[in-house]
């Protein structure tokens, strides 16, 4: 598959929740080694869009394809196994488990050892535990979290939790990485290091990144493409410069009077 072919294609995705139209026909394309940002005011449907891609609900209309294979309507765990990994707006780590166990869970769907093999910790189970541990340790090094790997994830500060959650998505070696506000609630330094990690990801792997973020500085800095949603409708699309200059976008964000 060549570089310029889109990895993830969303076509005309629509979903309403009890009469409220959360998404009305949104399309997008995400490319390998590129960052596609989705911005928009609160309630624009950004998270709904990501949920639609990762299979949390079945869309009313439209379809999602990953490398030409339709994934809309699949159960979430099947979408994940097809190569879509994500993080959550409110961190969804398993707080009682250690950082290491959380990361190992990211690779859980790749492990196939039987109950018997696991119970005896012999043969395939042991081999898998060690080989996947080796892979996970690479990402632990990459994210610089080796000193906290045995700490319960729930005891970490938010910035680190977000980093661990990024790690849990990365260890699955996804084809598409969906990041739902990875910098929410972070200070400037933490945002900078998170941006660095995201850029490193597209440099070192051929993952396609879809990013939801409120910090316009970050979005304009690191995105290759930006999509603007407002009330479930895509109102603009283009490079960061194009979007910044788009009068519809300014209107959606600041209101009619300022735009005039």
């Amino acid at each position: 598959m060549t570089e310029d072919q889109p990895r993830l294609i969303v076509e005309d995705l629509a979903k309403s929740f009890g009469g409220v139209l959360a998404l009305s026909g949104v399309s997008l394309q995400a490319h390998p080694r590129k960052i596609l940002s989705i911005i928009g005011p609160n309630g624009a449907g950004k998270t709904t869009l990501i949920n639609g891609i990762s299979g949390v609900f079945t869309p009313d209309r439209g379809k999602v394809t990953l490398d030409g294979r339709p994934i809309s309507g699949l159960a979430p765990h099947k979408v994940a196994r097809a190569g879509v990994a994500r993080t959550f707006q409110n961190v969804a780590l398993f707080g009682g488990m250690t950082v290491l166990e959380n990361l190992m869970l990211g690779r859980n769907s790749k492990m196939r050892a039987s109950v018997l093999s696991c119970g005896l910790f012999w043969g395939r189970a042991q081999r898998e535990e060690i080989s996947h541990r080796r892979q996970v340790e690479k990402f632990i090094d990459f994210l610089g979290i080796s000193d906290i790997r045995k700490q319960p994830a729930g005891s970490l500060p938010l910035g680190l939790q977000k980093r661990v959650e990024l790690g849990r998505a990365l260890v699955a070696e996804p084809k598409v990485l969906l990041l739902d506000e990875p910098m929410g609630g972070m200070n400037l330094e933490e945002k900078e290091s998170m941006a660095r990690y995201i850029l490193d990801v597209i440099e070192t792997t051929d993952t396609a990144v879809v990013l939801i973020e409120h910090d316009m500085g970050v979005v304009m800095d690191i995105s290759d493409q930006v999509i603007v949603l407002d009330q479930g409708v895509k109102i603009a699309e283009g490079t960061p410069q194009e979007v910044r200059a788009n009068p519809t976008v300014i209107e959606a964000y600041l209101g009619q009077t300022h735009a005039a």
Partner: peptide, 21 residues
């Protein structure tokens, strides 16, 4: 092993568990 971790994941946050496969 992976089976036990899946158990705990399902217990603690079943939605997140499903999303990670």
């Amino acid at each position: 092993t992976h089976i036990g971790r899946a158990f705990i994941a399902v217990r603690d946050r079943d939605v997140a568990a499903e999303i990670i496969g």
